[in-house]
């Protein structure tokens, strides 16, 4: 952050503050707030109890009501700070009737006091409702959704890398009739989005019996023209002499692919792998169409279904949103340089 501050206070040159300096300052300052703020708010909110979530105005941090064990009572009693004519003190609530609460001093459990609830506030400390995170896994299907998402992401990425790199190899390192046609075909479909072919694609996936199957989600996404295009561009830069040297060295064409070309394509494969993971993890529209049974939902579809219920249980929903966000944030933190370089270089997304 000190580096950020150093940048913020850096000026265009000269001693006077140029209007561009002020503008830069404002733009970047509000950017930190607007870009990070919402995600941070999501994370903070996800630890709040349902009661706290419905508070208005909301508190910044999650709090938990304090409870205390009092002699003579089986359950833990919630603590309140009471201030009335008798002064300020901390009491535990035994039961509440209308606007009046029966309360005891934990130090003196025998004497029950009657307090107007307007005169008391709950005693709270910063605390996290971990149940928001645990319950959906234990009581709902979120564990299943997560497994499905991991399966789809992993398998689709592996198949993408394998099939795309094989095709890119054939299209970059061999001369054959129709090669130009295939390359043009792939480039031409680079930008055909899924939304244009939803209906017929659905009928084809149904035709091969993959509706409500994770494979129905995986297969239509793996033959990405983008991947073939990216890998081919990279493979074109590998000198042909290396392949010829390998041929002189008794290597079969398959060995040339996996012992020579594939390792040398590793940087491009890494970029494609990262993007494939992010793409497949985030896919929404297609899984939404193909998957209509709960047990095959991916996280994104599950979240949407959960958010669409009449009585949204925000405390669970927010926690699950955080869970869904985590892998992508991890990828972002560790591989930011790769991703930004990949985008700047290829316009991939």
């Amino acid at each position: 952050m000190s580096r950020a501050m150093a940048f913020l206070t850096r000026r265009k040159g000269g001693d006077a503050w140029d209007w561009t300096d002020v503008f830069t300052f404002i733009w970047l300052g509000s950017a930190v707030f607007i870009m990070f703020g919402p995600a941070l708010w999501l994370v903070l909110s996800s630890f709040k109890s349902p009661a706290q979530l419905s508070e208005f105005p909301p508190t910044l941090l999650p709090y938990e009501a304090q409870t205390v064990a009092v002699e003579g009572y089986d359950r833990l009693l919630p603590l309140f700070s009471v201030s009335d004519d008798d002064g300020t003190r901390t009491l535990a609530e035994v039961r509440r009737v209308g606007t009046v609460a029966q309360m005891v001093d934990p130090a003196n459990p025998a004497e029950v006091q009657r307090i107007n609830i307007a005169n008391r506030t709950p005693v709270r400390e910063v605390g996290f409702s971990w149940g928001n995170y645990l319950d959906p896994f234990l009581r709902f299907d979120f564990l299943n959704y997560t497994k499905n998402s991991i399966f789809v992401t992993g398998v689709a990425t592996l198949i993408t890398l394998l099939t795309n790199s094989m095709a890119a190899f054939a299209l970059s390192k061999y001369e054959f009739r129709g090669r130009g046609f295939v390359v043009v075909l792939i480039i031409a479909t680079l930008m055909i989005p899924l939304s244009v072919i939803l209906v017929p694609l659905y009928s084809i996936v149904a035709g091969v019996g993959l509706i409500n199957s994770l494979w129905g989600v995986i297969l239509p996404t793996v033959a990405t023209p983008t991947g073939v295009f990216l890998l081919r561009q990279y493979m074109l830069t590998i000198p042909d002499e290396l392949l010829e040297a390998a041929r002189m060295d008794h290597a079969s064409e398959w060995q040339i692919y996996w012992r020579i070309v594939l390792p040398l394509t590793a940087p491009a494969l890494a970029v494609l792998a990262i993007f494939s993971v992010v793409w497949r993890w985030n896919d929404f529209l297609w899984p939404l169409i193909v998957l209509s049974r709960q047990e095959v939902y991916t996280l994104q579809v599950g979240l949407n279904a959960y958010a669409g219920e009449l009585n949204v249980q925000w405390h669970y929903l927010l926690a699950m949103t955080v869970i869904t966000m985590i892998p992508v944030v991890l990828v972002f933190i560790f591989l930011q340089r790769f991703i930004t370089a990949g985008i700047a270089g290829t316009g991939l997304k």
């Binding site: 000198p239 002499e241 290396l242 010829e244 040297a245 041929r247 002189m248 060295d249 020579i260």
Partner: peptide, 15 residues
């Protein structure tokens, strides 16, 4: 591969 010859390339073509 089947000619039993070895070649040294101009660029060396080392892997």
């Amino acid at each position: 591969a089947d000619r039993g010859l070895a070649m040294v390339f101009q660029s060396y073509a080392l892997y």
